[in-house]
Computed example of a mutant assay.
Amino acid sequence: MKEKIRLFLETDLLESYLLGNTTTEETLQVERYIAMYPEVRETYNELQSNLEAYAKMHAIKAPEGLKARILQKIKAQDAGRRKFRRFAIAASISAVMFAASAYFFYNQNLNLHQENAIVNTKIQNLEADMKQQLEDVRNQFIVLNNPQTRKVSIKGNKKAKDLKALAYINPVKKLSYINVQNLPQLPENQCYQMWAEVNGEMLNLGVIESADDKEKLRALPYAEDAVSYITIEPQGGNLTPTVQNIVANISY
């Protein structure tokens, strides 16, 4: 064991350790020897004392005013850091304001695009409605003025004796319309509803308001052997016709 300690002390590891020149592995070895062996610890303490004494003997007095200059430089650096922080805060605020402005204008632009799309859709729907209305007016004119149009007088059954309507059917143009001229008064919880059976399918043509204009023509879907019905239904209309409440029918 003593030989091991002697060999260790003959190396310069303790001096290198004191000067901070050892590797990680050498540092661990030195610290282990200092902790384990009193001889090494004693030598280490002696070397440390000698190093401190040498440093004091050869210490150089600091120049006059050095401390003041160092403190002044530290203050200047602190001031610079504070200025930088203020600049950074201002820059951050500007960045936030810019981001907020960009987001605001982005939203505005997005809203404008959405509003524009809504307006365009409304215009397209309006154009489609107008086109449909013009087409309907044109068809009514053809039906009313075409000599091949057949007029069918319609009267209600015993459930609506005063019901009167006139159907216009044109098999050449395949157009048909009905003009409801009179509807008997119904209780408030009931209404008249029109249906058409076309190719085996029952179509809901909607509720007939008793206040309809007597000159108004209502389009009927045309098909050979089609049949239209008028029924009495609960107020607001029904999804399927109530067969026992049929008050009139129109055969094409």
Rank of each mutant, 00 (worst) to 15 (best):
K2H: 08
E3A: 14
E3T: 14
K4Y: 15
R6L: 13
F8W: 06
F8T: 08
F8H: 04
L9P: 13
L9V: 13
T11S: 14
L13V: 10
E15T: 08
E15Q: 11
S16Y: 13
S16E: 13
L19D: 02
N21W: 10
T22W: 05
T24A: 08
T24K: 09
E26K: 02
T27R: 03
T27D: 07
T27L: 01
Q29P: 13
V30K: 08
R32S: 10
Y33R: 00
M36T: 14
Y37P: 03
P38F: 09
E42D: 10
T43Q: 14
Y44C: 03
Y44S: 05
E46M: 13
L47W: 07
N50S: 09
L51Y: 04
E52S: 04
K56C: 01
M57V: 12
H58Q: 07
K61N: 10
G65A: 00
G65Q: 01
K67L: 08
I70W: 06
I70K: 00
Q72N: 05
Q72G: 08
K73G: 13
K73Y: 15
K73W: 15
I74R: 15
I74Q: 13
K75F: 07
D78R: 06
G80D: 15
R81W: 14
R81N: 14
R82S: 03
F84V: 07
R85D: 02
R86F: 15
R86N: 15
S92K: 06
S92T: 09
Y103L: 14
Y106C: 03
N109C: 03
N109A: 02
N109S: 07
N111S: 12
H113N: 06
Q114S: 00
Q114A: 01
E115I: 12
N116L: 15
I118V: 14
I118D: 15
T121M: 01
K122P: 00
I123A: 06
Q124S: 07
Q124F: 05
A128F: 12
M130T: 09
Q133E: 10
E135F: 15
R138A: 14
N139M: 03
N139Q: 02
Q140A: 06
F141P: 05
F141L: 07
V143A: 13
N145L: 05
N146Q: 12
P147S: 00
S153D: 14
I154S: 00
K155D: 09
N157R: 01
K159Y: 12
D162Y: 11
K164C: 06
A167L: 04
A167G: 03
P171D: 07
S176Q: 12
Y177G: 00
I178Y: 01
V180W: 09
V180R: 07
Q185Y: 10
Q185L: 10
P187T: 10
Q193T: 05
A196F: 04
N204D: 15
N204S: 11
I208R: 02
A211L: 04
D213P: 01
K216C: 04
R218S: 11
L220R: 03
P221V: 06
A223N: 02
A226T: 09
A226Q: 04
S228P: 03
S228N: 08
Y229S: 01
T231H: 06
I232G: 03
I232W: 12
E233V: 06
E233L: 06
E233K: 04
P234F: 03
G237S: 10
N238T: 09
Q244T: 02
N245D: 10
I246G: 02
V247M: 10
A248S: 12
N249K: 13
N249E: 15
S251Y: 11
S251H: 11
Y252C: 09
Y252Q: 08
